[in-house]
Amino acid sequence: MSAIAATATRTVARDRAVAAVDTRAIAMKRRGRGRGIRTGISAAVIVLWCLAPFYWMIVTAFRDVGYTYDTAFWPTHVTFDNFTTAFSTQLGNHLGKALLNSLFIGVCVTAIALIIGIFAAYALARLDFRFKGILLGVILGASMFPGVALITPLFQLFTNIGWMGSYQALILPSISFVLPLTVYTLTSFFREMPWDLEEAARIDGCTQAQAFRKIILPLAAPAVFTTAILAFISSWNEYLISSQLSSDATQPVTVAIASFAGSQPHQEPYTTVMAAGTIVTIPLVILVLIFQRRIVAGLTAGGVKG
């Protein structure tokens, strides 16, 4: 069932792409080569601007700490020491633990937001009821809510009930921005789904709940998966709340990296931090590049920054 839908989506996408290429090819020819070259240069500038700092982080991560300020654009004085230092608990760097913390918090937040949000998204996309527009507005507004407005009362509350530095003290506040993002993105995806199939199932004798579970849920799997990635990334990237409410034992990677120690005392540990940054970033970048199309669709549908 999902294969048919996927093929259909792909065909539509291809048709659209072909049509776009046809009209544009004619236009391109008429405008001549000058514009093509200008486009090429602009594209090169964009790629360079986006990737150069990222490339510099990786090059520095593999550079010997004695040559931190080497300005050669290619890798020089290559070493893996920075990665060892980044994981060195003796120097007070708990990167390994922090990675696990971030993973655990991210998985919990994503799971809670998806399980709760999927029902709301179904209702918003599929059902006709009063106050729907207002509800969408409220949920969108919630995702734009400033984190500082939550942090002071939560700081006091968690201090009073002894939750300070606990995992739940980091998971709960993250839901405040991950859940709205999840609901909004899922709602956008659900609106585009082939709901005729649900009706077909209903005619064949399924109840609405069955139609949802047996037809819609498998079809919605890609949308749910994309939303899960976006939710996980936004939880993984959170810094403000974690920096105030976490302890050494529960701090996520973003907080760990911001307070890093290097192998040389009294010296800013640039190379170590770049190594840690590389470790934190590479899995995300790979994930994003693999699911590039879906993530872009999800980002523009939800319109919410991760």
Partner: peptide, 23 residues
């Protein structure tokens, strides 16, 4: 390639971005 490259700055956590530009 352009569309892929443009996603890289977005994917990097802000905390890492800050440290990267700090360097």
């Amino acid at each position: 390639l352009v569309r892929a490259a443009i996603l890289v700055p977005w994917a990097i956590p802000t905390a890492v971005t800050a440290k990267l530009w700090f360097f």
